[in-house]
Simulated assay, not measured.
Amino acid sequence: MLSCAIIDDEEINRLTLEHYISLTPGLQLMASLADSIAGLKYFQEGNRVDLLFLDIEMPHLSGLDLLRALPDPPEVIITTARQDFAVDAFELQVADYLVKPFEFSRFTQAVQRVLQRRRPAAAPIAEAAPASTDLFVKVNSKMVRVNFDEVLYVEALSDYVNIVTPKQKYIVYTTLKGLESRLAQFPNFVRVHRSYLLNTQHIESIEDNTANLRGGHYVPIGKSYQEGFFKSLQKI
């Protein structure tokens, strides 16, 4: 049984979530609150839940700011009418991001994702579910889900980066350094040049300090990065 709470300033959205929760075995609603200020007070008073359904745009304190203010937040499923906060939300390790209006089937999928994230702790003898390798990136005005296991390399382009997969390229407004910090959870990504991050699992061969990747792609290995890079290859 997962205890849960709702924080949303729109009554119709709270009522919809309350109904969905009532239809879902294993969920127990503990609180349904009308804004983040009430939510902050609720948690500061020592109340705990396993799962929080959280809106973003609310008066005085946004949902993301509330999440940042909690020292030990529960699992969070974002429920919002806005698509453009997805990157910020996933950087805060939310379990899922639902864009209103959403159907009960999508709600159920998000709840199942939370259950999968919690399963290794509840049953340590079971094999842990693999961590997601997906990240949302902003391409022009659209949020795109990218599987970074499939990414060959990332190339710096001034204030942008070029994320290259075997089938597609994504031009994203961010710096290579900023993206490198976000990819720290993926050990296969290695900085091999001032302008390149390389996914080592796609290397087919290395010759003349150039990594030859699947699909005929090539990435140079900078002189100052060579020693650390070749040492890391010995561990593969």
Rank of each mutant, 00 (worst) to 15 (best):
V111I: 15
E45P: 01
N212C: 09
F189C: 02
G222W: 14
A110M: 07
S224M: 14
E227N: 15
Q109S: 13
L92A: 06
L197P: 06
V190Y: 10
R113P: 02
F43I: 12
V190R: 13
M30V: 15
L33Q: 06
F104E: 12
V190M: 12
I163W: 00
N13W: 09
A184M: 11
I171P: 09
V144L: 13
F104V: 06
L23S: 04
I77M: 07
R106E: 15
H202Q: 12
V94P: 05
L27C: 09
V111R: 14
V99D: 01
G216N: 09
I77G: 08
A5L: 14
H19V: 04
L233W: 07
I163H: 00
N188G: 08
S181C: 05
H202L: 03
Q168C: 11
Y20H: 09
A89P: 03
R119V: 01
Y173E: 04
L213P: 01
V94G: 03
I37C: 03
P166R: 07
I77S: 08
R117N: 13
F53A: 07
K100Q: 09
L33T: 07
E18C: 02
K167D: 12
Y153T: 01
F102K: 03
N162C: 13
A31N: 05
D72V: 08
A34P: 05
L54I: 04
F148Q: 04
P130L: 13
N162P: 02
C4A: 11
R14P: 07
A156K: 12
I37K: 01
A110W: 04
L54Q: 03
P73Q: 01
N209F: 06
F104L: 14
D65T: 07
M143A: 10
S158F: 02
Q112G: 05
Y153D: 01
L115T: 13
G63P: 11
L183W: 11
G46V: 05
M143K: 01
S181I: 08
S132M: 13
E204G: 05
V164R: 13
I221F: 08
I12R: 01
I203G: 07
M143N: 06
M30R: 15
A81R: 09
G228K: 14
E204S: 10
R106Q: 15
Y153I: 01
H19D: 15
P130E: 14
V146I: 15
F189R: 00
K41L: 13
F189A: 00
D88A: 13
L52H: 06
I78G: 01
